[in-house]
């Protein structure tokens, strides 16, 4: 018997799993009928699959279900009686778990505003992202001065994309776009250039009312932020504040 190629084996698995189209399945079935090695491999895959699927599955015990349900109970997160466990580590872990839950709820309501992350964090993250992009081989994931390329690229990845006008006529050509991850959230960023300086423009979705641009500095970069058109925009660059403000004026004029 000739050995079976990995590709054939993958196709046989997909056949057994019912993941081939009818025409693909029919073509493979015809080959199986003609080649004993394929038929033997198909039987082997099916038998393995059946052996796995026949493994017994233990039911969720009422004790476990109760313990998990209690995790979500704001009023009594820690008082569910547990039968003694042989594992002392687990006991300690239970207490920690309860403490975590209580802490989470304490931190959630009235104390939320006190414990809210300090505003600088996101700004620093944006400055860091810009800094990282300058150190990378290219500051953009998609390189194009054509907004009809950049916008769909961001849309396809994130489902959102900010206005991406090419500002080359005013001296700020669009270089491309990239994805920034800020505190676990992926957001679009546009990259412009001005006299060899790179400008990153990060756009986070925001329902807040429009605000005028506000200038500040973080991580050694000049930055400006404002809210418009459903986005909270932040630009970051090593440009002089006045040049960066001019860019923002241009962008806002072209985007509105």
């Amino acid at each position: 018997m000739t050995p079976i190629s990995q590709d054939d084996r993958i196709a046989l698995n997909a056949l057994v799993d019912g993941q081939l189209s009818p025409s693909e399945a029919a073509a493979l079935e015809a080959r199986i009928a003609a080649e004993a090695a394929l038929a033997a491999a198909r039987d082997e895959i099916a038998a393995t699959r059946t052996a796995l699927r026949n493994l017994p599955r233990s039911a969720v015990s009422p004790r476990f279900l109760e313990a998990i349900d209690a995790l979500a109970e704001p009023a009594k997160p820690a008082v569910v009686p547990q039968p003694p466990r042989r594992n002392a580590w687990f006991e300690g872990w239970q207490n920690i778990a309860a403490a975590v839950v209580i802490t989470a709820f304490l931190a959630s309501g009235a104390t939320y505003w006190l414990s809210a992350p300090r505003p600088a964090t996101l700004e620093e993250l944006i400055a860091d992202g810009h800094h990282r992009s300058l150190l990378a081989a290219t500051p953009v994931d998609v390189q194009s001065s054509d907004r009809h390329t950049v916008k769909p690229w961001l849309d396809a990845r994130l489902g959102i994309s900010p206005p991406a006008p090419d500002l080359a006529p005013t001296g700020y050509p669009l270089v491309g776009g990239r994805v920034e991850v800020l505190g676990g959230q992926a957001v679009p960023a546009l990259v412009y250039r001005h006299n060899e300086h790179t400008i990153s423009l990060v756009a986070r979705p925001s329902a807040a009312a429009a605000t005028a641009p506000r200038a500040f500095a973080s991580g050694g970069y000049n930055m400006l932020e404002w809210i418009a058109n459903g986005f909270a925009f932040t630009v970051v660059s090593d440009l002089e504040p006045s040049e960066l403000a001019a860019f923002v004026d241009n962008y806002r004029a072209a985007a509105s």
Partner: peptide
């Protein structure tokens, strides 16, 4: 006023 959600 920064406009970030955390300072809403």
């Amino acid at each position: 006023m920064t406009g970030f959600p955390s300072t809403a």
